[in-house]
Simulated scan of single mutants.
Amino acid sequence: MSIDTAEEHIASENINKNERTSHPHDAVKGVPNRLPSSLIRELSALSPGKALFALFLEWLGIAAAIAAYVLTKNPFVYLFAVIFIGARQQALTVLGHDASHYRFLPNRFWNDWISNFFMQWPMFISTEGFRKYHGAHHRYLNDEKDGNRFLWKTHNQEGHLVEEWTYPKSKGQLAAKIIRRGLFFTGLRWIIRGLIGMFVIRGSLPSMLARILFYGAFASWFTMAGLWWEFLLLWIIPLCTWHIVTQYIRLIAEHSAVQSDVPGYQETRTTIPKVWEALFILPRNIGYHLEHHWYPSVPFYNLPALHKALMDTEEFPRSANISYSILRSLQEVVKK
């Protein structure tokens, strides 16, 4: 076990017991606006009922969209289903993102297993694999050990941003990137990478065997029931189109062309979406990104309260890059 992994294990056990406010994914360079420990401890308290109910609602929405298309066979209903299911797939990865921070369920065992079965494995990733890169992204944001440099290939070997992740861009360049990524092939590559990755980024042996059985069981069911076409139409196509579009929109908004004159505020943007944007693009408070980077111990349902607490300070509202629409965030990353 590496030193970082050992420290993460110890800290994750401590935050689950609410013994302290530190988190294994805290930024090593700290944050410029430290709220009282008592408040962070309160906001970091987990509510399993809220987490599980959110997961239930996402799967209920997926089931409803599938049923609507199956019952109508209407092409317009299908188009809506693709967008709606793709957005719910994004929501599953957001909930799985909380689990990667040990913030979905208090028990670490059930946190990871529930996350894998109902959030990550259906999306062809794993909680452990995502945590490996995302934890490093938090701890070393914009440093050479930032996990996004490996997961999203944002930088070249010299440590410079590659062209795709260099902003601002022209409107045409931004639109072309998002459209190109949403044309199925990026999503298909993600699926293949995820399936190969389970043999490369190994969790425990029981977890790897369970994941193989998970896919094998569903493959057998689809074969016996003749559901492969429906699986393609109602899971793979939403995943490889709208889900990918929302992932790239989110990523671009989070860290690109962030505007602030104050160090510590210059690396991450907060986007508070409109209601329809929250439903279709930025679900489950994932847009509160500066707040999340500063305090990864706070679960998704408490991020609005964390935002409010920070807005009550003198520095945060003056220095933070806050947008009140995802469309506005995208406008900020294009050339004026």
Rank of each mutant, 00 (worst) to 15 (best):
I3Q: 01
I3D: 06
A6E: 13
T21V: 15
V31C: 14
N33P: 00
A51T: 12
G61Q: 01
G61R: 15
A65K: 05
A68H: 12
K73D: 08
F76S: 09
S100M: 03
W110H: 02
W113D: 03
N116T: 03
F118N: 01
T127P: 00
T127R: 00
H134F: 03
R139Y: 05
N148I: 05
T154D: 03
N156Y: 06
Q157G: 04
H160G: 01
V162A: 10
W165D: 08
L174C: 04
W190R: 07
R193P: 02
F199P: 07
F199R: 04
S204F: 11
L205I: 11
L205P: 01
P206H: 07
F214E: 04
G216K: 04
L227M: 10
E230V: 04
W235N: 11
W235R: 00
W235Y: 01
I249H: 06
I252S: 02
I252D: 06
A257F: 10
V258F: 12
S260E: 08
P263Q: 02
G264R: 03
R269Y: 09
W276D: 01
L279V: 07
I281H: 08
P283E: 07
R284M: 14
I286V: 15
H292D: 07
P296A: 01
V298F: 04
P299E: 08
Y301H: 10
P304F: 00
A305C: 00
L310D: 06
E314G: 00
Y324M: 13
R328Y: 14
L330A: 08
